[in-house]
């Protein structure tokens, strides 16, 4: 390959890199913005964000579509049992408390699509979880 061809390809790569970089300036991060959460939730979020980002990005749980407490309990137990997870039983309680808050926020945002995923002010009472609520398996799909 001639050196000019090499530079053409290098320039093409450079352009993609710049586009990607500009993309990130306007982006949202993979986690959530804790400053938009009620203060009482923030310490729980910190434990979730610390523990659940050890082996993969936070996008994995946050994008999973899971909105059911029982399903989260199974999932967090599954992750706790992963070798070297560093997730103790004590952490599990805190993480599940955060995931309950997050699920309720997700459901609320779905009901009112214009709303932010994480509301700045304390949320109005979420719809009660009852037996007729859609199964998490359906929601996940």
């Amino acid at each position: 390959m001639s050196s000019s061809a090499v530079w053409k390809r290098a320039r093409a790569l450079g352009v993609i890199a710049v586009v990607a970089f500009v993309g990130c300036v306007t982006n949202r991060s993979e986690g959530l913005d804790a400053s938009k959460m009620p203060e009482s939730v923030r310490p729980d979020y910190e434990v979730f964000a610390q523990r659940c980002s050890k082996c993969h990005s936070l996008a994995r749980p946050l994008q999973s579509g899971i909105e059911d407490d029982a399903f989260w309990a199974l999932y967090v137990a599954r992750m706790r049992r992963q070798p070297s997870s560093g997730i103790s039983m004590e952490d599990t309680t805190v993480i599940l408390r955060f995931l309950h808050y997050f699920s309720e926020e997700q459901k609320r945002a779905k009901a009112k699509p214009s709303e932010l995923l994480v509301a700045p002010a304390p949320a109005p009472a979420p719809a009660p979880l009852d037996a007729s609520a859609p199964d998490a398996a359906e929601v996940a799909q």
Binding site: A20, G23, C24, S29, E30, S57, A59, L62
Partner: peptide
Amino acid sequence: TFAIERGFRVKA
């Protein structure tokens, strides 16, 4: 790595 959106990254 650059997080463009949640669940979407660019790696260089």
